[in-house]
Design a protein around this nucleic acid. Structure first.
Lengths: 158, 158
DNA sequence: GTCCGTGCAAATGGTTTGCACGACC
DNA sequence: GGTCGTGCAAACCATTTGCACGGAC
């Protein structure tokens, strides 16, 4: 995978998230700022645990619950995209908070953004065929990433 | 949504599932047969609870754990497709046990199969761009189904 | 008769919630 | 100073697991 070239600019995204929070009359606490920073500082689609670990470095007394609450808040404000999984913890994207395709390694759980192929047209086609009012979508490709292939060979077993 | 015309034939699928179980040296118990029947007798993508409720009609002493175990078994044999969700129970497709697109109503959780648009090419493109060995995929469109629109109007709120 | 499958109950684990203290505005 | 956010602990809930009995083959 080529290193995803853009996504949005971390600095820009940070500013936007802070602004959005303020615009909704929400308070900017040090913990929240640290959580937002953690979210925009990586393309790895971190879990809440990951964010918690990162934030704990600055604020060791932070609780997991706080991270859950803030991330959930940002999700409702459409400032992060949530990728939900039944078998592992959910993962979050603060750089591209809108639906887009992902490739997910079944072994190491790496999640990356491949270059966009137009999904919008597909969504439109779906809407017309089904009568649904499409609100969102999610397209995930599951497989074995190049590193894991090198490490153990491709055998379809996660 | 037009009533999904095909998928596989329930009778054919039932036979295939039974054969597969036997071929793997697994026992055919009345409960298992009932679970398999429940899986092929609907296009509604039932949850384990749904299957349990259905099976309980014939065998009132059946336990949820048994349904979980059998469904999980069928999943490993690639005889059912699992749709995993973090916010609600997983849903299962015994008629089309291979990856395919879905439309999912955010209000009533109805899940349907829209007519296939070629995803295979997309998967191929992903593989080339990312170096991943693609094993599976999942494409979900989330929205409000026609019935729910009629019932309450479209307001983007699940 | 052997071993697998069942059913019950308890455990699991990510996520959510209730509540009281402390901090932001 | 009033209210919101935090941190702790307990609750939640779909799913999984352990184990002993009973049934499939």
């Amino acid at each position: 995978m080529v290193p995803t070239p853009s996504g949005h600019d971390p600095v820009e995204r940070l500013q936007h998230m802070v602004d959005t929070l303020k615009a909704h009359g929400l308070r900017m606490t040090p913990q929240r700022l640290a959580i937002v920073q953690a979210l925009v500082s990586t393309q790895a689609h971190p879990s809440v645990e990951d964010i918690y670990t990162e934030v704990s470095r600055q604020f060791p007394t932070t609780s997991l619950a706080t991270v859950y609450k803030t991330v959930s808040l940002l999700k409702e404000l459409h400032e992060v995209l949530e990728l939900g999984f039944p078998n592992m913890s959910n993962r979050y994207d603060g750089l591209k908070p809108y639906p887009h395709p992902h490739v997910i390694c079944l072994r190491c759980k790496t999640i990356m953004d491949p270059e966009l192929v137009s999904i919008a047209e597909l969504a439109e086609e779906m809407a017309q065929k089904t009568g649904f009012a499409i609100v969102s979508h999610r397209l995930d490709f599951f497989g074995i990433c190049p590193e894991c292939q090198r490490r153990e060979g491709v055998d379809n077993r996660p």
